[in-house]
């Protein structure tokens, strides 16, 4: 039956094309709708005051200053820990060893780590940092948990960046009598820098947007954090609480707009850097 009922290839192509066009429009429209709703409802809420005033009455009034500060602190700590570990791992994998069992195990570990859902990181951070190490719900606990979460991203992007540095650079450096470490720090890392920075910026984006892992480790205190041992509420957590408990829809939209704009900016910077980077490495 099916064989007989065959369409003309050209007719089939037309139908498929229309169908694909339709599905693509649906996908693109839905995604644009999300952006549009957030910006349309959120942008009118934004003002310098919204960014620089502390929330009052559980966020019903005031701005989101303390949550912006908390987000930046948390992200900063996460990167402070994850960047050296991640870049170090990448240097070891690419410059200091040969492909073998050890590298394969390390890569497998990083890959598995990347697949673990954030709520598991949250559970883990809660037990280890909050309870066992007695950091309590704090910026420190949250930052360390996030560091573990973004580690695989930093390892992978740094590894790719270092790998794409042309072998000729290294040969020239060695021929001038440099040690391996000198070659790595003076030649390889500077040329891989844009790629590494890209990974770091991607991680910033992930840290800013994360909720599940943060809420169990950094807590949700709304005050301006006074040290890394105080609990803090990041923007995403604040948005989650505002929206879910229906505390204030305008403030929720405003917070969402700040979040989305921040992340879009971060992604645009990444994209720009990556473009430059790819452009350069393909030229060389």
């Amino acid at each position: 039956m099916k064989e007989k009922f065959r369409l003309q290839p050209r007719a089939e192509q037309k139908i498929v094309q229309v169908f694909l066009y339709f599905l693509t429009s649906v996908a693109v429209l839905v995604l644009f709708f999300i952006l549009a709703v957030i910006l349309k409802n959120g942008l009118p809420q934004l003002s310098l005051e919204f960014l620089t005033k502390n929330p009052a009455h559980m966020g019903r009034e005031g701005g989101i200053f303390s949550t912006v500060v908390a987000t930046i602190y948390l992200t900063f700590i996460a990167l402070l820990v994850a960047t050296p570990l991640g870049v170090g791992t990448a240097i070891y994998l690419t410059e200091y060893t040969f492909e073998g069992t050890v590298t394969r195990i390390i890569r497998f570990g990083a890959e598995c780590l990347a697949g673990i859902p954030s709520i598991i990181f949250g559970l883990f951070g809660f037990i280890l940092f909050v309870n066992k190490l007695k950091f309590g719900w704090s910026i420190l606990s949250g930052g360390l948990t996030l560091a573990f979460m973004v580690l695989p991203t930093i390892i992978r992007t740094s590894e790719e960046a270092i790998k794409s540095v042309p072998a000729a650079y290294r040969l020239v450096s060695y021929s001038l009598g440099s040690t391996r470490w000198q070659t790595v720090t003076k030649v390889v890392l500077p040329s891989a820098a844009p790629g590494i920075v890209t990974g770091v910026i991607l991680s910033i984006g992930r840290s800013i947007g994360e909720t599940a892992a943060v809420i169990f480790t950094a807590g949700s205190a709304l005050h301006l954090p006074s040290s890394i041992f105080s609990s803090a509420r990041t923007m995403s957590v604040h948005f989650y609480i505002l929206a879910r408990e229906g505390i204030s829809m305008p403030k929720a939209y405003g917070t969402a707009a700040v979040l989305v704009i921040a992340i879009l900016l971060i992604n645009i910077i990444t994209y720009y850097l990556m473009g430059k980077y790819i452009g350069r490495s393909s030229r060389s």
């Binding site: 200053f65 912006v68 500060v69 930046i72 602190y73 301006l224 006074s226 040290s227 105080s230």
Partner: peptide
């Protein structure tokens, strides 16, 4: 970072928590 970090430093003057 500095813009948001400096005001936070002020709150170190808190005497007890």
């Amino acid at each position: 970072f500095c813009f948001f970090a400096f005001p936070a430093c002020r709150s170190h003057s808190v005497s007890s928590e």
